[in-house]
């Protein structure tokens, strides 16, 4: 008995060891790949095989990154972009959920509005940016609006689909328990639609950043997007790459947040997905 137990335990232990060793190997391979590519790149730059105005050397990018970190530019511009992203995301997500519930509750209304909503949804939001510049200027507010509009439609469509796709059998089951219409609304319709809405929210998070960056690229004097375009306009490619690295880190952080939300929702989430038809 105890021999069986200990052999089971050692089997579990050895399986764990195998996995740990596997993970370590993958990590080493990743670092090796990074070092090799960066090393070759640096070597190529040193030997003048790569034109530094096209692709700067890793050392130059690092120096540029260090410079904007130390002189406070990075923190300043990143904070602007973060504010735009979060502001646009919050306004768009809340607006999308409220609109989705409001319109979804009246099937006739949503049927009338369908083609118009689809028309507005189909417009690439980037194309609205110049108009927003005229309306709102080149300040932070214009980027928030652009991000919000992008987010709003994704969340709105998911919420609307959620309100429309409530499982009839769940409604019946709760009605049979003697639930009042208000209970059916609060205990079935809203939570069911919310799981769809949250799927939309989850999808929309990266789009908030995209909206903010596009707004900055088009017209601005601050933010990571501005950092990229101003460096590019003075042929400071090292500066462009440095800003891109900052942007990559921000996007990866957002994706980590999305993954965490996914992990928490997966316990009870109703399978919900709406195809996202471009932005």
């Amino acid at each position: 008995m105890s021999a069986t137990l200990s052999s089971t335990l050692s089997a579990v232990q050895s399986r764990r060891n195998v996995r740990a060793r596997h993970n370590l190997r993958i990590a080493v391979a990743r670092i090796a790949l990074f070092v090799a590519v960066t090393g070759l790149w640096q070597l190529g730059s040193n030997l003048n095989l790569i034109d530094p105005t096209v692709v700067p050397s890793p050392a130059a990018i690092w120096a540029s990154l260090l410079k904007i970190t130390l002189n406070g530019q990075l923190a300043f511009h990143a904070w602007i972009t973060i504010q735009e992203t979060i502001g646009g995301f919050l306004i768009g997500a809340i607006g999308g959920i409220v609109l989705g519930f409001a319109i979804g509750r009246y099937p006739a209304l949503s049927e009338v509005l369908d083609p118009f909503i689809l028309a507005i949804y189909s417009v690439p939001k980037v194309a609205l940016a110049p108009l927003f510049v005229v309306w709102f200027g080149i300040g932070i507010f214009m980027k928030i609006v652009l991000a919000a509009v992008t987010v709003l439609f994704i969340v709105f469509f998911n919420t609307l689909a959620g309100v429309r796709n409530v499982d009839r059998d769940l409604v019946d089951a709760v009605w049979l328990m003697g639930a009042k219409p208000r209970d059916v609304l609060m205990k079935v319709l809203v939570p069911s639609a919310m799981s769809w809405a949250l799927t939309g929210v989850r999808i929309a998070i990266p789009y908030a950043l995209i909206g903010a960056i596009i707004g900055e690229l088009i017209a601005s004097n601050r933010g990571i997007g501005y950092l990229i375009s101003s460096a590019a306009s003075s042929y400071d490619t090292a500066g462009v790459f440095a800003a891109l690295i900052v942007l990559t880190v921000m996007a990866m952080l957002l994706n980590a947040i999305v993954d965490e939300i996914d992990r928490r929702l997966s316990k009870w989430k109703v399978d919900a997905s709406v195809s996202i038809r471009g932005t």
């Binding site: 499982d167 059998d169 769940l170 019946d172 089951a173 709760v174 049979l176 003697g178 205990k187 079935v188 939570p191 069911s192 919310m194 799981s195 009870w268 989430k269 109703v270």
Partner: peptide, 15 residues
């Protein structure tokens, strides 16, 4: 209110 109904399809609320 004095009837309990169990259908073949599962109708537990997922949330």
């Amino acid at each position: 209110l004095d009837i309990g109904y169990l259908t073949q399809k599962e109708t537990l609320l997922p949330w």
